[in-house]
Each structure stands twice: as structure tokens, then as C-alpha cells.
Amino acid sequence: MLSADEAADLIEAIASRQDRAAFAALFRHYAPRVKAFIMRGGADAEAAQEIAQEALIMVWRKAASFDRSRASAGTWIYTIARNKRIDLLRRTGRPPIDTEDWLTTFHPEPDDPDKSVLAGQTYTRVQELLGGLSTDQLIVIRMAFFEDKTHTAIAEELKLPLGTVKSRIRLALGRLRDALEKENEP
């Protein structure tokens, strides 16, 4: 396993000295996870492998943009993988978006006083949170992240009223907020 700090060290080693050994270590940890994540959304193994490869090359290119005080390595790599998935969908007929722009928007401005919320041990908290969600809430959240569906599409697919899906999302996000705010307390 790779801790959040170790992963951040590896990205910084790429940024400061183009460290290929650091890249290889990141690749071994994250490329199989990105591939699994993309396959969850319905892509075949070959396409998912290509996206994983492209996502990790983007990690190399953009390593200097990474800021460990603002996002954990896992969060940052997730956003890159998500953008690569959108690129794939673009080729299959979805309206394209500029994926690099999304990367920028995920970076808070330097004057944001509330940074580092997501750094460090947030994963532990979020994982605890996921364990605490109801099955109904978890299904909706997983469909959103893995299958790249809007809440409207999720409601249609589950044959649920839109209001039900909205309230499940809001309850789950309320718990997310509680879990992460706890972390900021001394």
C-alpha cells in the first residue's frame, strides 16, 4: 500500500527532478486502480488500460501543478482519470469539454483560507463515511462516480422519483460534510 504522504512525495519527486523511479511506483499503485475504476463505468479492459496509461502520463506532465496542501494524491489522480474518461466519451459522441480546464477548476485559489481540508488522512475519514452510508445512499453515490450518470439519469434507471434520488444524495453529502468537518477540529 501507498500512504497519502508517500504518494504526494512521489509526485513532488517527478515535479522537482523528473524522477522516473517515483513515476514507476505511482504507476504500479494507481494504474490498476484507474483501470478498475474506468471498467466499472462500462469500458472494456483494453480501453480502460489505455485510459489508465494516458492518465498516468498526465500525472507526469502536470506533476508541478499538484499541491499537497490542497488535495491528496488520490483525489488529484481521480480527477485526472475522470477527465480522461470524459475524453473517451467524447470520442463516442458526447459533447466534449476541455479537460485541462477541469483540472484547473479543481484547484482552489491561493487565497482560499479553507485549504488542506482534503489533504492527509481524509481518505480514512471518507472510507469510514462510506461504511456508514445506507445501501440506498451508497447505490446512488456509486452510480454517480463509477457510471458517470447525472442524478436525473440515476432516477430514471432506478425508476425512482427524482425527489427521492435528490434526498439520498443530500443525506449522503451531509454525512460527508460532517465527517470532514470533524477532521478539522483540534
Binding site: 480502460a48 488520490g74 483525489t75 481521480y78 482534503l118 481518505y123 462510506l130 462516480f145
Partner: peptide, 21 residues
């Protein structure tokens, strides 16, 4: 909130397991 959602997506990706590469 969007940053927290990014962390949630990252955690889901981390915990979902890995595919053979």
C-alpha cells in the same frame, strides 16, 4: 463541497480494488 466530492471520488477509486495490468 466539490473538493470534498473529489476526495469521495478518489476514495471510491482507491477502495474499489485494482484490475490486472
Amino acid at each position: 463541497l466539490v473538493e470534498r466530492l473529489g476526495a469521495l471520488g478518489g476514495a471510491l477509486m482507491e477502495t474499489e480494488g485494482d484490475a490486472a495490468l
